[in-house]
Amino acid sequence: MEHLRSFFRVIRVFWTVCSFYLKLGFIYIARRYEPALRTKGSYNHSIVVLGDDHALGVGDYSTLTGGSGIAHKLTKELAKQPPIRQSWQIYNRGEYRTSTEDWLHPADSKRKEKPKLLTRVFQDPKYLNAEIVIIMLGTYDVLEKTPSLTPQDTLRNLQHICQALRKNGKKAKSIYLCTIPTAGDDIYLTEEQRANNLTRNRLIEEYVKKNDDGVLPGLQIDSASNFEMRRENLYWQDGRHFSDIGYTMMAKDWVLLIRPDIVKREFALFRPDLGL
Rank of each mutant, 00 (worst) to 15 (best):
E266Y: 00
A79E: 09
W103H: 12
G66K: 15
I135V: 10
F7H: 12
K264T: 01
L56F: 13
L56R: 12
Y176I: 10
E232H: 12
N92P: 10
S62P: 08
P35Q: 07
I27V: 15
T199A: 10
N201W: 12
R120P: 05
I221A: 07
E192Y: 04
A183E: 11
S46A: 11
E34A: 11
K167A: 15
E113V: 14
K209Q: 07
W236T: 14
T248E: 14
I135S: 05
G25K: 08
D185S: 14
Y96M: 14
D222Y: 04
I180Q: 05
L155P: 02
N201P: 00
D253F: 07
M250S: 14
E101K: 10
R111H: 03
C162D: 00
T182G: 09
Q159N: 01
M229C: 05
Y96D: 13
L37K: 05
G25A: 13
S174G: 01
I135C: 06
V13D: 07
S87Q: 06
Q163M: 04
Y28C: 12
Q152W: 00
D213A: 06
P260M: 01
L276P: 00
T190E: 04
A71Y: 06
G66R: 14
R230I: 09
R265M: 09
V263P: 00
S174E: 03
R166M: 03
Y91C: 12
H105Y: 06
F20H: 15
D108K: 07
Y91Q: 15
